[in-house]
Design a protein around this nucleic acid. Structure first.
Lengths: 143, 143
DNA sequence: GGCTTATCAACAATCGTTGTTGATTAGCAG
DNA sequence: CTGCTAATCAACAACGATTGTTGATAAGCC
């Protein structure tokens, strides 16, 4: 993802205003590799600026996504996660806690010839599901 | 998926009762390859039995899933889809209308050695995203 | 037919997310 | 620095998908 300074410039260029709320979110997202949910970003943001609203977090994430600066992921774990990494990559998803981690690899996958069923395929994502380190440990005790 | 008769027997064996509502849902799911949503099943069911409730559809789908007879899919398209096919397979997803189709293929994908980041991976799903036949035609006109 | 308990339909509630609104403030001209 | 105007804000209501609750009903078994 671009740096907070670059995003600030990009926003201004496009006629968007850059508020303290947005600058903070730029900071929280920059270099963030844990695919935060809107809620978790809101929690982090609230720590610094208690008056910020969840709505503002969603709004800014939505703006960033429509500019192509972040990627919204829905792994079927209840809430969307936001990925500052917009390169092609894949994901490891914890079935228990919903944790998501990036996986960089080129699997060179494509739909076998004649099997696309009328679809024009734009991209292929691989999702590896399983248990993360933390949830694995929990499993040893009660199940 | 098992036949309605087999499911009826399975349910009874497990102490579940088999109501007309459930038998109808067994029928609607059997041989169904379009990954219906709960709503679309509800619509189909209502045509035959106008008094059936959406709650009953969800309840029965949930029962079937916990018995491993169907698979719940969340492709990030708003609502869950239910797949009577529990074999390992992949999916084609329409970015516009949410349509989902099965794709049988063995891609032999695995997490590259040492890159699992603490995860114990149970399975890998490939999701091909693009546009389906119907939505492609719409695109030619206004996009 | 009668008993017991799972299931039913209706309804309210939940969760993540988006729409609405009047007040505030960023960006810019003077 | 002052003032203008539109974008943004926080608060709140609303939304769609799903799940919880409840009293009435009916499946399964005697």
């Amino acid at each position: 993802m671009k740096t907070p300074a670059e995003l600030t410039e990009l926003f201004r260029t496009r006629g968007f205003k850059v508020t303290p709320q947005r600058q903070m979110l730029f900071r929280l997202l920059h270099g963030n590799d844990v695919h935060p949910t809107a809620e978790s970003l809101y929690a982090a943001a609230s720590a610094e600026m208690p008056t910020i609203s969840l709505r503002t977090v969603y709004q800014t994430l939505s703006d960033l996504e429509s500019m192509g600066e972040i990627q919204q992921l829905d792994m079927g774990t209840g809430s969307s996660r936001f990925d500052p990494n917009t390169d092609v990559h894949h994901h490891l998803v914890c079935e228990r806690c919903g944790k998501v981690r990036d996986l960089y690899a080129d699997f060179a996958i494509s739909v076998p010839r004649g099997r696309a069923q009328g679809f024009t395929v734009k991209n292929a994502e691989v999702v590896f599901r399983g248990l993360c380190d933390t949830c694995k440990q929990g499993d040893e005790h009660h199940g």
